[in-house]
Computed example of a mutant assay.
Amino acid sequence: MYVAVKGGERAIENAHRLLANARRGDQSVSEVTLDQISEQLGLAVDRVMSEGSLYDRELAALAIKQARGDLIEAIFLVRAFRATLPRFGTSEPVETGAMRVQRRVSATFKDIPGGQILGPTFDYTHRLLDPSLAQGFVPETPATAEASTAPTPRVTDILGRDGLIESSPRAEDGASVGDLTREPLNFPADRDLRLQNLARGDEGFLLAMGYSTQRGYGRNHPFVGEIRFGEVEVEFFAEDVGFAVPLGSIELTECQMVNQFKGSATEAPCFTRGYGLAFGQSERKTMSMALVDRALRARELGEEAVAPAQDEEFVMSHSDNVQATGFVEHLKLPHYVDFQSELGLLRKLRKEFAEANAPDAMKEAAE
């Protein structure tokens, strides 16, 4: 590392001080607080929690502040902190059908049980800069209602009643669930590990992979069956009392994508599913997840896997932004010995090349 360079340790210490000053910026400007980040940069906080695999808005806001707004660096910080936490067990599967819905839309049916709930979204806004936001803008009070607590059946359940979509897979009782945070990734990977990988994966990478399937690299023709965002209760089975106890509520976004499937020799034509789930309001992320999840099921459904998004090893090995960042950014660190070795080899090869071609050069000069 740079410590090996003369004066390197002092240089690194000063680099830390420079970073702290750059992070703070002009000290005549009020320092941003964690509450401000959490409340006003909520989508950035949601992304850091999802890809950092830790639901804690305050810690995610702190990581964003410490990282100067670099979300991948913030995700790295959250994961590093998460690795220090004790592990008490595994929560019960959350019931998204009982979600206290704040937003719920379907692109497949206009009228759905419980209705379409537009909620907070950019979908219908004009993409024009709003100068009023720079002047301490106070928004107009919106019409509000309590989040629905009535069970809202999923749109895919409507299709399922008529047998028009594949059954939702259910885990066997007592079946173990893989954990990418504690075990190395191996191939082939079951769907539980694939979905974990996608949930932690870089949103931009997944967006590109999902987009590629829509452009023909994977023969994906999707419909958004439903996107829902709201609060769900998390429960933990307490062995001491013999039943699950509630730990609290978290915000989640769930996307169920409906895809065409022509059937096979043993399976009748029906719709198939792609699935996405992430912390907070993460609609682009969960839609991309659902597209890639469906693409990765190609072999399972008897389809030819020819596109990058259908290649399990390619997608899962390159989706993690922390791992990718480490591998790319390590190139900034000293590689003096390696480069000198390469430089010596190149000079030797050039000398051998010149000697091998010297007679021809002399002959041409004589002519």
Results as ranks from 00 to 15, higher is better:
A4L: 14
N14K: 14
H16L: 08
A20T: 08
N21D: 13
R24Y: 06
G25N: 05
Q27M: 06
T33L: 04
Q36T: 14
L41Y: 07
G42K: 12
E51V: 09
A61Q: 03
I64Y: 00
R68C: 15
R68A: 13
L71S: 03
E73V: 07
V78G: 03
R79V: 00
F81K: 12
P86R: 09
R87E: 06
E95V: 04
Q102A: 15
R104H: 01
K110Q: 11
P113C: 15
G114L: 08
I117L: 14
F122Y: 10
D130L: 06
F137T: 14
A147E: 11
T149L: 10
G160M: 11
S167E: 12
P169G: 05
G174K: 08
A175M: 09
D179H: 06
L185A: 06
Q196T: 09
N197V: 05
N197D: 02
L207W: 07
Y211M: 12
R215G: 03
P222N: 05
V224P: 00
R228W: 01
A244G: 02
G248R: 06
G248K: 07
S249P: 00
L252D: 00
T253H: 02
C255N: 08
G263C: 05
T266S: 14
Q281P: 10
K285P: 08
K285C: 10
V292M: 03
L301N: 00
E304M: 13
A307I: 02
A309S: 11
M316R: 03
S317M: 14
N321R: 15
E329K: 09
H330G: 09
V337L: 10
S341Q: 13
E364L: 12
A365F: 08
E367R: 04
